[in-house]
Amino acid sequence: MSELRSVDVCSGAGGLALGLEQAGFEPLLLLDKKAVACDTLRRNRPAWQVLETDLLDFTPSRHQEIYDVDLLSAGLPRVKSSATVARTETGAELRLLEATVYLAHAVQPRALVIENVPGLVGAPEFEPVRDLIRKELDHLGYRFRWFLLNAADFGVPQDRKQGLLVALRKQYFDAFRPPEPTVREHLSVGQALRSSMAMGGWRDADRWAAQAIGVAPTLVGGSDSRGGADLGPTGTKKAWARMGVDGGTVADNVPSPDFAWAPETGRQGMVRITTDQAALLQGFPSDWGFSGKKTARYRQIGHASPPPVARALGLAIRSALATPATSVAGYTSTP
Rank of each mutant, 00 (worst) to 15 (best):
G227N: 12
R226H: 10
K238G: 03
M270A: 11
R267C: 05
G222P: 00
P285M: 01
D246E: 06
G283L: 00
E264M: 09
R242Q: 15
V220A: 06
D276M: 12
Q277D: 03
Q282F: 01
E264G: 15
A251C: 06
S286C: 08
F284G: 01
V220G: 02
K238W: 05
F284D: 03
D287W: 01
T265A: 09
M243N: 07
D246F: 01
K237W: 01
P255T: 12
M270L: 09
Q277L: 07
D246N: 14
K238S: 04
G266Y: 02
G248N: 07
L281Q: 03
N253L: 12
S256P: 09
R272T: 13
D224A: 15
R242L: 14
T265L: 10
L219N: 01
G235Y: 02
G227L: 12
D224R: 15
I273C: 04
A229L: 02
D246R: 05
D230W: 14
D287V: 02
M270E: 02
T218F: 00
D252R: 14
A262S: 13
A216P: 00
W240H: 10
K238L: 07
A260E: 13
L280T: 04
M243F: 05
I273L: 15
L231P: 06
D287S: 05
Q282V: 09
L280F: 04
A279T: 04
L280E: 07
F284M: 05
A216T: 11
T275S: 08
K237D: 02
G232I: 08
G232E: 04
D252N: 12
S223G: 11
G248A: 03
K238M: 06
L219W: 00
A216S: 13
A262R: 14
K238A: 09
G227D: 13
A251E: 02
M270W: 03
G248T: 05
G247D: 02
V271P: 06
A278F: 01
G244P: 11
L281D: 00
T234S: 15
E264L: 13
D246M: 06
T234G: 14
F259N: 00
D246Q: 08
R272V: 12
P257V: 02
A229Q: 03
G222S: 13
G232A: 08
G269S: 10
W288L: 06
M243Q: 07
P263F: 04
D258Y: 09
G221T: 10
G283N: 03
D230N: 15
W240Y: 15
D276G: 13
P255N: 11
F284C: 03
V220E: 02
G248F: 05
V271M: 09
T218V: 07
R267N: 12
G235K: 04
D230I: 12
L231K: 05
D276Q: 14
Q277V: 11
Q277P: 02
A216M: 04
T249A: 08
A251F: 03
A260H: 10
N253M: 12
G227M: 11
A251I: 00
T265G: 07
T218Y: 00
A229C: 07
K238Y: 06
F259Y: 07
R267H: 10
N253G: 05
G248L: 04
G269W: 01
R226S: 10
E264Q: 14
A241F: 11
S286D: 13
T265F: 08
G227A: 14
T234I: 11
G228Q: 11
A239Q: 15
P217V: 11
L219V: 03
T234V: 14
L219I: 01
S225I: 08
